[in-house]
Nucleic acid binder design. Structure first.
Length: 876
DNA sequence: GACCGCCTTT
């Protein structure tokens, strides 16, 4: 059976009986087909159209009252109804001549750019024939004012003028742009009635327009029906159909059409290849897009600026900035000049790769080709400068964008917020409101994320609460910002609560939610919880995402399950440098430096270039093995071998290594000779070494250095306090008077233990700890008392201090786990602060006495206690 | 035929 569109009746009502205008935006006041409802249908229409026309088969009243107040408004008033008189077809010779001259005038005005004058002439015409309508519609069409074209087309048809094949094509083009399926379908039926679409018809342009209209309206089924019915096809026909398939993700069908067209003698052209390349690139199938590029070049079609731009922007979107710039370079080599869009995309690539100098070069290029004032390039530049830390340059570019859009504002607000200038960001945020720039959900998300990442949780939550009352609906990213920020600030429990709350409000978590929440599971709970979220990811087919796999490796490792981490890594199909770093760090955390180094070799064999994190891990691995000279060799040759300049992390690793090997003086001198200003981590490494090796003089010296960094920094206060606790001596630095024996600081410590798939939280000095747990702890203490009596004075000092601040949380957790889990089952504890030596000894003794493996992950290291020994070998 | 900004892993 033939599929035909809605009927287009032959009978047309008298022009003055129908309103001319219709709203430019939104749906028709009534279906256009209803205007001709008095006539019987002539052709079998589409199902939908049949229903519509058959329901309005009853004759309409001959006149329809239409008071001016109720007339639909348009941005451009359409011509008033014509006075009753001779119909256009029966005009006298004189009036015909008038029409011709007025039509010419419309064309002249239009060509001279005086669209308003053209419109005035048109509206003043007493009688308008097809040519007059064509001239007026054409004037709008060539300027891309498709809404107007559609409005005029409706008015024309209602006035009883039937468009010819040329005008039908134009109107269909406008329908495609405005996605006006209704008018488009009516034009299709008219084209059929006029015989333009018949089997033997040679009118390809009309058929192509119909096809393109259905494709743009997302009606692939109707497009296919039109395609199959076309008597003749040209390159454009195939292109439209292939585009339609790509747009609907019907990739196989698109490729079939490509083969079909070649078989039927039409060679794919530039647009065909560009459609395929850009569609694959846009959908993230970048490797297939590159394959298409190859095929394109093989078939002798030279890629143009659109081909390359699609690829550059595709790679930018796929977070493959390097390949984006590589494509850009290939394009330049091929002699293709980039346009504003290409440059904008290449600048984005520089932004994501933090390539300031290359970004600046592109800025110069944008100035040269005159696309610097283009809002697209401007926005990319703002983003690039901000991401490269050049916030002043970013602001300068922003100020010079003549017509800022929401992207410009958001990029600048994000630039400030991400650089930590939340006040500046908020100023702009307020300025947007006062200037009447509508802030969207992204603007709000930027502010929320900015505040929470800069530690101002309160303001972040305030904005999160406020946004809906300001008329902006929260989306998944708004929730993600809170979750990621909470994890970032160490509030994993709160992150989990938000995660559950969003699900109870039926906000669907996306892969970023999962990615953000995985560290929370790892920080809070044992590996069963990590397995749970892993299963959840698996069921949602998210595992294939490389980033999620990386986060999982890390989570398994941190929760004490090295085997789980290895399993994820080994099945990881798209390993990158981060995946390798994760697995190397996992082995390191579990005290297996040789496995970590094996992985490093494997990685190099696979051709993956180590980055600064890898090399830090490698130095640490050598440090754990006591291979000082190997570590030093890596350190000294890293710039030459890997083009990586040592940063503070590498210096810290070397200080740690020297400290472990007991070369305290060398470590101290090494710090003195550093070209960088030593930070907290560097001094902390030395303090640890000095404390463990019992070098009180150096420890005291280091504590002073630390407190001179920033006496108000709570992390430093805690470090120095811990040192004081470890040595049992008072430190001769003024900051020690700041707090009362460190009580507030000790209060922060908490830990979690997972038993039978439940997670229990304990805090140091927890007065609410279950009495039974305290009793159990006392029992354990009695059991191992004999051994405890033999330990050093240092730890006794700690015990005294513990009496002051309350029982340490990990002791409570161990006691609770011993009495609530089956015998011999391993105990996994995750705590926020570093373990004290008394608890360390306690855990060692419990592991021996109760024959349990105890894993305690503290802020510095993972302690694996087995048979009275710890994997850290007493150095942490 | 292409279009920049938010939330993400070591």
């Amino acid at each position: 059976m033939e599929l035909l569109p809605a009927p287009f009746p032959s009978f047309l009502p008298r022009p003055h009986q129908l309103p001319l205008s219709r709203p430019c935006h939104g749906r028709l006041q009534e279906p256009i087909t209803a205007a001709f409802a008095q006539a019987p249908p002539l052709a079998l229409p589409f199902q939908e159209a049949t229903r519509r026309s058959s329901s309005s088969h009853t004759p309409r009243p001959s006149t329809r009252p239409c008071p001016p107040a109720q007339r639909p408004t348009t941005t451009h008033p359409l011509p008033p109804p014509l006075p009753p008189g001779p119909s256009p077809s029966s005009g006298s010779t004189g009036s015909e001549r008038l029409i011709v001259s007025e039509t010419k005038l419309i064309t002249v005005h239009s060509c001279a750019g005086r669209l308003g004058d053209a419109r005035k002439v048109f509206e003043g015409m007493a009688c308008r024939d097809l040519l007059a309508w064509s001239a007026m519609i054409g004037a709008y069409a060539i300027r891309g004012l498709y809404e107007e074209v559609v409005a005029l087309a409706v008015a024309m048809v209602r006035e009883g003028v039937i468009p010819d094949r040329f005008l039908i094509t134009r109107i269909l083009q406008a329908c495609a742009y405005t996605e006006d399926l209704e008018l488009g379908t009516a034009m299709h039926s008219l084209a059929i009635r006029r015989g333009f679409m018949a089997e033997g018809a040679r009118d390809v342009p009309v058929g192509n327009s119909v096809l393109a209209m259905y494709v743009k309206c997302g009606e692939l089924g109707r497009a296919r029906a039109a395609f199959d019915m076309m008597g003749q096809r040209d390159l454009c026909t195939w292109n439209s159909m292939i585009f339609g398939c790509c747009r609907s993700n019907e990739w196989e069908e698109a490729r079939r059409l490509l083969d079909d067209m070649r078989r039927q003698g039409t060679e794919p052209g530039l647009v065909t290849w560009n459609t395929l390349v850009s569609s694959y690139a846009r959908s993230g199938e970048l490797d297939v897009a590159m394959e298409m590029l190859e095929q394109m070049e093989e078939s002798g079609v030279a890629p143009d600026v659109v081909t390359w731009t699609s690829l550059v922007s595709g790679f930018v979107h796929g977070d493959r900035g390097g390949e984006a710039l590589w494509c850009f370079a290939r394009m330049r080599l091929a002699g293709v000049e980039p346009n504003g869009m290409t440059i904008a995309s290449a600048i984005s690539a520089c932004a994501s790769l933090r390539l300031l100098s290359q970004g600046m070069e592109l800025h110069c290029h944008a100035i040269k080709v005159g696309s610097v004032n283009n809002v697209l390039s401007g926005n990319s530049l703002v983003d690039m400068y901000a991401k490269c830390g050049e916030i002043i340059a970013a602001k300068r570019v922003f100020d010079e964008i003549p017509e800022k859009d929401i992207f410009s504002w958001n990029s600048m607000v994000a630039g400030y917020a991400q650089a930590g200038y939340c006040g500046k960001a908020y100023e702009l945020f307020c300025e947007m409101e006062s200037l009447g720039v509508r802030r969207n959900v992204i603007t709000w998300n930027i502010m929320i994320s900015g505040y929470i990442r800069n530690g101002d949780d309160e303001r972040a939550f305030e904005l999160f609460q406020m946004m809906e009352s300001c008329g902006v609906k929260r989306d998944t990213a708004s929730w993600n910002a809170l979750i990621a920020g909470s994890v970032h600030n160490g509030h994993s429990d709160r992150a989990l609560r938000i995660f559950w709350q969003m699900q109870s409000l039926l906000v669907r978590p996306d892969f970023i939610t999962i990615l953000s929440i995985i560290p929370a599971f790892a920080n809070l709970a044992g590996f069963w919880k990590v397995r749970e979220i892993h299963a959840c990811i698996y069921h949602n087919n998210l595992e294939m995402d490389g980033k999620i796999a990386n986060a999982l490796i890390n989570a398994y490792s941190k929760s004490g399950d090295l085997a789980g981490a290895c399993a994820v890594f080994d099945r990881h199909s798209s390993r990158n440098i981060i995946s390798w770093n994760c697995i190397i760090l996992a082995h390191l955390l579990h005290g297996s430096p040789s496995e970590a180094l094996d992985r490093f070799c494997e990685m190099k064999q696979e051709g993956v270039r180590p980055d600064h994190t890898t090399l830090t891990a490698v130095i640490k691995a050598y440090g754990l093995q006591g291979k000082v000279s190997e570590a030093k060799r890596i350190f000294h040759n890293m710039t030459h071998d890997y083009n990586i300049i040592p940063d503070l992390d590498h210096y810290t690793a070397i200080v740690d290594l020297l400290g472990r090997s007991g070369s305290l003086q060398e470590a101290y001198e090494f710090i003195g000779n550093m070209p960088l200003i030593p930070n907290l981590a560097v001094w902390e490494a030395l303090l640890t070494a000095a404390t463990i090796h019992g070098n009180a003089r150096l420890a005291n010296l280091t504590a002073r250095e630390l407190s001179s960094l920033d006496p108000s920094d709570p992390r430093i206060q805690r470090l120095v306090f811990n040192y004081w606790g470890l040595t049992g001596k008072s430190v001769d630095v003024p900051l020690m008077t700041v707090y009362n024996g460190g009580r507030e600081l000790e209060d922060v410590d908490s830990c979690s233990v997972e038993i039978k798939n439940n997670v229990y939280l304990f805090s140091t000095g927890d007065n609410l700890a279950l009495e039974s747990t305290v009793a159990e702890l006392k029992l354990i203490m009695i059991q191992i008392r004999m051994s405890l009596l033999n330990i050093s004075n240092e730890t006794n000092a700690e015990e005294e201090k513990e009496e002051l601040s309350g029982i340490h949380c990990e002791k409570l957790a161990i006691a609770f786990a011993i009495s609530n889990s089956p015998p011999f089952r391993s105990i996994r504890i995750i705590k926020t602060l570093r373990m004290c030596s008394h608890c360390h000894i306690f855990a060692k003794l419990v592991s021996e006495k109760y024959e349990r493996q105890i894993l305690i992950k503290d802020s510095n290291c993972l302690h694996k206690f087995e048979d009275g020994k710890c994997s850290c070998e007493g150095y942490w």
